[in-house]
Design a protein around this nucleic acid. Structure first.
Length: 574
DNA sequence: GACTCGGTTGGATAG
DNA sequence: TCTATCCAACCGAGT
């Protein structure tokens, strides 16, 4: 049965529960955005589609609030695009997280006299049909900065315009709207975190989160059985491939986890990322990242709660503090929003153009936890099975895949993280891979993580390795990080022959890391030379190569910079 | 343009 | 166990 159009009778309107949510909007320093140029105050329209994509929450959702304020009846939809289901690199764990988040959203909406309408289909087709079927006057959604989303949203907006339907968007995913920061900073995009913090300091605090929604939605007449959230199998995902359900999706769980973390004020205030362990058996950080990624948790809510707690006692500071982590997210979203091809090497104007090796067998071994380095393989196993690993564990495996050991492209690592991570976030994933591969942001390529020593610092006994690589469970501690060094007798005694039951090391770290440092040095010199040549061309009035970055050009100019002449005591060291 | 400063989160070693 | 120092020497951004 097709869903009926929402027609409100006089009786119904009298019997309606409390009028919709009247929430005072906090003063926002950011301009109101609208894809439609008409920003004039208007009468409430009748029927509005609210399109959930990220921001899978009811709390602090500016665009949803806008929809509520502008319309009488709201159709809250989520579109499952079949193309996306078939072609995207989303692993089973993240699919499960998404579906759980949608089910939770449906539950939240039920409590407000509404339901989530899940539609499977190509967005353009869905909107073409539903605009007519539901007699829609307004479409609202949270604006997005990712390239694929921008393109999709432009298409829907022009379709709506053609059909005479207004589209209104608001931004709410990060603390600051990147567009606003860009304007405030005269279109400049810094490549250093501290510079970015300087910009934010001039702008001031981000907007406060909106008050909780109160009241009820006006009921719409629709057959919800036609629009249920599907299960994994019905979208072609094999649920047996999901790992343990450690981080259930959804706003409810996000808020529960959030409150739980904030019960311990002292922990929140003392938090220093480098002092948390990458290989503890229980996560040493908040694991709120998947909830921020899907917008189950508002970053503004997080930020302002931190401020509240910080006001009471002494606390850590950026970059190491929890606030610092949120601001890194801002930084990477900002650079990602204004850098062409930010998730690629080619055409990426800030990324150093390094010619990485093309060794699919190395990438595969790394992905499948077969490098022969237990610390690396344990991390990759945790990633694949549980969908979350500590930030420093990400550093260790990313360095290993790229400049440290295997010298493979960060793009390959990015793909694997895209598939496995629950918190996979376009800007953050691309930025962190560029950071760790010393392609953008970070340039001290000679600082290499050891796949042996780094893990020992926080887990000398190797309990983390024993948990994720059961084949090494009973291996002596002395050899747990370097099992190939164990005498054959010991390997036999512990039922793990290296080269048979567990791989030999894929490379010799001590040798290859030194070779790779010199390869990086050469790669840096080559990019300098390219940039210098480009500068010459520019001076001759010729066209600059598209892959040459501004930052690289700066390098060329400062090529003659003398080596660090500071006394040893002043040289970089924490 | 020359120069300085500091950079989320490296490892090994000596004291 | 903690801290300072050396290793080799990078870059962006500010003055």
């Amino acid at each position: 049965m097709p869903p009926k159009k929402s027609i409100k009778t006089e009786k119904e309107s009298v019997n309606d529960t409390k009028p919709l949510i009247k929430t005072e909007i906090k003063k926002e320093p950011e301009p109101t955005q609208s894809l439609n140029s008409d920003n004039l105050k208007m009468e409430k329209v009748t029927n509005c589609i609210y399109w959930f994509r990220k921001a899978l929450r009811l709390h602090d959702n500016p665009s949803l609030l806008n929809a509520i304020e502008k319309s009488q009846y709201i159709y809250p939809i989520f579109i499952l695009d079949p193309w996306f289901v078939q072609h995207s690199k989303v692993g089973p764990n993240r699919w499960r997280f998404l579906l759980e988040s949608l089910n939770d959203l449906d539950e939240q909406l039920k409590r407000k006299n509404s339901r989530l309408i899940l539609i499977r289909g190509q967005p353009k087709k869905v909107f073409t049909e539903k605009i007519k079927e539901w007699n829609i006057n307004l479409i609202c959604f949270e604006s997005d900065t990712e390239p694929y989303a921008k393109k999709r949203d432009e298409e829907i907006t022009s379709l709506a315009n053609e059909l005479g339907v207004r589209v209104e968007t608001k931004y709410g995913h990060t603390l600051y709207n990147p567009e606003y920061v860009y304007k405030k900073n005269n279109g400049k995009v810094p490549l250093q975190y501290q510079s970015f913090l300087g910009i934010l300091a001039k702008i001031g605090d981000p907007p406060k989160p909106l008050d909780e929604l109160s009241g009820m939605f006006n009921k719409i007449e629709i057959d919800y059985d036609l629009y249920k959230v599907p299960d994994l199998e019905s979208i072609g995902v094999d649920s047996s491939k999901c790992g343990p359900r450690l981080y259930p999706g959804g706003e409810t769980e996000a808020l529960r986890r959030f409150e739980e973390k904030f019960k311990n004020d002292s922990w929140v205030c003392a938090f220093e990322k480098p002092n948390t362990s990458p290989n503890s058996l229980q996560p040493s950080t908040t694991v709120l990242s998947p909830y921020l990624k899907f917008g189950c948790l508002s970053s503004k809510k997080f930020y302002w709660r931190l401020k509240q707690v910080y006001a009471k006692k002494k606390h850590s500071l950026p970059p190491v503090s929890l606030e610092g982590q949120l601001l890194f997210r801002e930084f990477f979203y900002y650079v990602g929003s204004y850098t062409p091809n930010f998730d690629k090497i080619e055409g990426n104007t800030v990324c150093r153009q390094i010619k990485w090796d093309d060794k699919p067998e190395y990438v595969q071994a790394w992905k499948e936890a077969r490098t022969g380095y237990p610390f690396i393989d344990a991390i990759m196993t945790q990633l694949r099975t549980e969908g979350w690993i500590h930030h420093l564990a990400r550093h260790a495996v990313a360095c290993f895949l790229t400049r440290g050991d295997l010298y493979c492209s960060w793009e390959k690592g990015q793909e694997v993280f895209e598939e496995y991570l629950l918190d996979q976030d376009w800007s953050l994933n691309a930025a962190n891979w560029q950071w760790l591969s010393a392609s953008t942001f970070f340039h001290q390529y000679f600082r290499v993580y050891s796949p042996i020593a780094f893990g020992k610092k926080t887990d000398d006994n190797g309990d983390y390795i024993r948990k994720y690589l059961p084949i090494l469970k009973s291996f002596p501690t002395k050899y747990i990080y370097e099992p190939w060094t164990a005498p054959l007798e010991i390997q036999k005694r512990h039922n793990c022959i290296i080269g048979k039951d567990y791989p030999r090391p894929i490379v010799d770290h001590n040798i290859i890391s030194k070779i790779n440092i010199s390869r990086m040095k050469k790669a840096y010199e080559e990019t300098k030379a390219t940039a210098a040549a480009d500068d010459g061309e520019e001076e001759d009035g010729k066209k600059t190569k598209p892959t040459t970055s501004k930052s690289v050009k700066t390098v060329a100019k400062s090529e003659k910079t003398s080596p660090d002449s500071r006394p040893p005591s002043k040289r970089a060291k924490k």
